[in-house]
């Protein structure tokens, strides 16, 4: 393809140089083709013989649409492709579980305080919060990553906001948990001192806090491990998507999250244009050239692939195969 954006390290070369890269994330502005790029990468890896799970963390899932088969129920083998499974992370169960936990806590407290308010309204309200689903999604994702059932996990939609918040705030949160743990320890020692039986009691709250800190630590270690993890950012040769990934890359850099590189999607192929093309196409081409220049300046050495605009939507494994061929050219 005729663009002057240099690709030193291609997608294929990057993955060859990072044999331990088990977790690949695809992020970017809406509408740039994250799902298609994640799908193409997963397909390519599966064809290389890696057991691959393509998972969506996007609250508005589109993997089933991409693959033309329902993958919402659980890890589902992709029809006609060996080694490839797909899954739209389902948070309903996690949310239901948290709801029950919260309900119990609140009900107990209401009883404890002798208040005749129904807990259910509070529970419903608490779990309606958008952040609640997002957190559940993130927890499920980390849980999946830790299971290591596959050689490679490919995630459609990098949890940008969550990762950023987690890494930025985990220090503060750890501090709080540490304090809580200390108070709990004191309380336990005191109780054991007063107890006749001197029996060591189970302490569920302490366990919850320890478990929570542990999971956060693991997520942080995984997400910042440059050997295991890579975030790829997808853009179009257009102003707004470029601006968005510039911002993302800046944030991620700040928090030490490994950036795999940039994929430029839906690029018009100049070579395929004959003479005498309509002005619209020529202008579009001119705009693209300007943005490719920006991309070269901003992401020099980090562009991993330039993927053409196809004549149809990237849907189904045949189209994904075409996209993969371009992505790993």
């Amino acid at each position: 393809m005729t663009t002057d954006v240099r690709i030193d390290t291609s997608m294929a070369k990057y993955l060859a140089e990072h044999p331990g890269a088990h977790y690949l994330f695809f992020g970017g502005k809406g509408g740039v083709g994250k799902t298609a790029m994640a799908g193409a990468t997963a397909l390519w890896l599966a064809k290389q013989g890696k057991r691959t799970l393509l998972a969506s963390t996007n609250p508005v899932h589109s993997l089933s649409g991409l693959l033309g088969q329902d993958v919402s129920g659980g890890h589902t083998g992709v029809a006609g492709v060996a080694n490839l499974w797909a899954y739209e992370i389902d948070t309903r169960e996690t949310i239901e579980r948290s709801k029950n936990e919260i309900r119990e806590k609140i009900q107990w407290f209401l009883k404890f305080a002798d208040i005749s308010t129904k807990a259910d309204d509070f529970v419903e309200s608490a779990t309606m919060n958008p952040a609640f689903e997002e957190s559940a999604m993130f927890e499920n994702m980390v849980e999946m990553m830790l299971k290591k059932e596959y050689d490679v996990y490919v995630f459609d939609t990098a949890p940008t906001a969550n990762a950023r918040r987690l890494l930025g705030m985990s220090k503060v949160y750890s501090l709080w948990v540490d304090k809580m743990l200390r108070s709990r320890e004191e309380a336990r020692t005191l109780r054991e001192m007063l107890s006749f039986t001197k029996k060591k009691e189970a302490d569920p709250l302490l366990e919850y806090l320890l478990g929570f800190r542990e999971r956060m630590g693991q997520a942080r270690r995984l997400l910042t491990d440059a050997e295991k993890t890579a975030f790829f950012f997808v853009t179009l040769p257009e102003a707004l998507p470029i601006a968005v990934i510039t911002r993302f890359i800046g944030w991620f850099h700040e928090f030490g999250i490994p950036i795999g590189g940039v994929i430029v999607n839906m690029v018009l192929d100049r070579a395929a244009l004959g003479a005498d093309v309509p002005e619209f196409v020529l202008n579009r081409m001119q705009m693209q050239d300007d943005h490719m220049k920006t991309i070269r300046e901003k992401f020099d050495g980090r562009v991993r692939a330039i993927v053409p605009l196809f004549d149809e939507e990237v849907r189904g494994t045949a189209m994904l195969g075409r996209a993969a061929a371009a992505l790993f050219a």
């Binding site: 919060n129 958008p130 952040a131 609640f132 997002e134 957190s135 906001a161 969550n162 918040r165 705030m169 985990s170 503060v172 949160y173 501090l175 709080w176 304090k179």
Partner: peptide
């Protein structure tokens, strides 16, 4: 200190931004 920790930790809540 206890209150200050609370203020800091509350801001770490995912729901804070929203």
């Amino acid at each position: 200190e206890e209150i200050d920790n609370y203020i800091a930790a509350a801001s770490a809540e995912p729901a804070m931004e929203e």
